[in-house]
Design a protein around this nucleic acid. Structure first.
Lengths: 307, 307
DNA sequence: GAAGGTCTGTCAAGTGTTTGTTCAAGGTTT
DNA sequence: AAACCTTGAACAAACACTTGACAGACCTTC
């Protein structure tokens, strides 16, 4: 009875049907029916015959569900999903968000679930939902469909009094640390390197972390100086690291003001400013260039310019 | 503490099954079953046939447990853990600093290498060294032998002018994010739960993160509110989460002062204060109790009292 | 409108697998 | 002697499998 090694070459953690049903919110019986009737997935099996689903399987089943909830008949949805899969030679290039048909309804549930879990200080549930999200989305999709929307909603509800400081604090802290854990290894690679910085007074760095993840996905090496980084620190780090570009993230007005006070940054490296507080006047004032929203577009632009 | 250490050739501390079971929170019978069924570890034996587990064994068993709590079936989790181990050809940090072949287990060299890498903004090298450290040490060892000493040295060199703000900033940021990534999953488990908080004005949270890791090692579930948490936030979170104990980490004098200003915390839960700035007068002033250094001892004391 | 057909999600029955746990009988460590 | 550990067998609960069936929704045809 030596270990029944499943042929799991890619080192990807496969899950059984129950877990997948829980994650995707589809009854196990339905999953089996879809497989039997439409051959939409073909999970590997254990020696004992248990189904083992990959992330790709999960993605397909989710988009199937999404199409159905939008009113597409199951048979039709299935044929679209399998056609999609056949037409996609390999992993989606990088630019694209989730495949073509957005997983909107589903990401809606995901977001709601996440907001619930975070609002009730249930980190375990939140991490579980983030697991699902990571299995179901590309990095771009995760950021644009889940993380940033959840952060925005959290901020709005907090401003409207619907969330306490504690809940807001907890939510951002959980998301932030999860994103940082995804970010492990983003400093390595072959591509151009970017130095990511939050200037003095700027404490929101999650957006910048997300941006770093998306850049790494596009081949960049990331050096990250977190929130509230002194200008002098930034200068010195830029000198040492010698990146292709420096990206400043600005949302807070006081951060903007502080930057303007310190005038031209005087780096030898191109500087871009991004974030909700980044405007043309700020960019001019510090000798930088504006990197406009939305975030995927910004990542693409940067890659096209300096990649 | 009751270090059942039997030296083997390399002088690595080995533990018997009972000790390991307690530490990792996995019943001894389960450990034996995993070994028998999945051959996930192969502990050495005493002459009498008792199992002796190495740190690498412990690390594997923990990652197995981690996968299981995330919903992966045990058999799958096992195959992934063993595949991981096989695919890791004993990562040898390349680069100038470490001349030693194989794993860098000398804590002095490790620390020096880490300080070098961090001081020159070389995150890749730093992460490699941290990889080595994690393979070679238990969580307790990692914290007490590597992380905290490196942080302390960094602080000292910075104070003495040997390090720039930039270097200090970068170093703590890299270490902090790595520790947070190790911390994934610390909210889950069966044991008692602890709420870990840095009070207003306290921005150093790495020590508290380390403490959380050590508690989780001892079976605790951790809820973490990061740096600079408002008192009100803490109160509300404590109410919601209803932990067995609240731990405040205090190093900065202003944090201490702010806490004293706000007087008794008035929680229904025992509160402990820890950290370099924690003194008896502070503890008394806020109706808390002092949790004395060193950090492993503090973790043991807490576990003995509330575990 | 009624009748018949197909599609689809769900359920039940009966079998098999996986996995944590328990027990007994005995050896080791301190 | 007490505490700890060993092996091997066995067990129960949770989980999953297949097959077959069925009700409701929807469509076509009479």
């Amino acid at each position: 009875m030596s270990g029944a090694e499943s042929p799991n070459g890619s080192g990807e953690p496969l899950v059984r049907i129950g877990e997948l049903a829980r994650r995707a919110g589809i009854p196990a019986a339905t999953l089996r029916a879809w497989e039997r009737r439409y051959a939409i997935v073909e999970p590997t099996r254990t020696e004992g015959g248990y189904r083992l689903y990959s992330r790709e399987d999960e993605r397909r089943l989710r988009s199937m569900l999404d199409l159905i909830t939008r009113g597409v008949a199951p048979a039709e949805a299935a044929s679209r999903v399998t056609a999609d899969a056949a037409a996609t030679p390999r992993a989606t290039p990088r630019g694209a968000s989730p495949p073509a048909p957005g997983l909107l309804t589903n990401s809606g549930e995901l977001r709601e679930g996440l907001l619930d879990a975070l609002g009730s200080f249930d980190e375990v549930a939140a991490q579980r939902l983030l697991d699902s999200a990571m299995a179901a989305y590309t990095v771009d999709g995760l950021v644009t469909e889940v993380v940033l929307p959840v952060l925005r909603t959290t901020g709005e509800r907090w401003a409207a009094g619907g969330l306490s400081v504690a809940q807001e604090h907890f939510s951002t802290s959980v998301i932030r640390s999860r994103m940082m854990s995804v970010a492990r290894g983003w400093a390595s690679g072959e591509g151009p390197s970017a130095l990511l910085v939050c200037p003095p007074g700027e404490v929101h760095d999650i957006g910048l972390i997300c941006f770093g993840l998306m850049l790494h996905e596009r081949g960049w090496q990331i050096s990250f100086l977190g929130a509230d980084t002194p200008i002098e620190t930034m200068r010195e780090a830029a000198l040492q690291i010698d990146p292709r570009v420096v990206v400043l993230s600005v949302t807070a007005p006081q951060a903007s003001a502080a930057l303007l006070d310190s005038g031209e940054l005087g780096l030898r490296v191109p500087v871009m400013v991004a974030g909700a507080g980044a405007v043309e006047s700020l960019a001019e004032g510090i000798g930088a260039e504006l990197l406009a929203d939305p975030i995927e577009r910004a990542a693409d632009v940067l890659t096209a310019r300096f990649g």
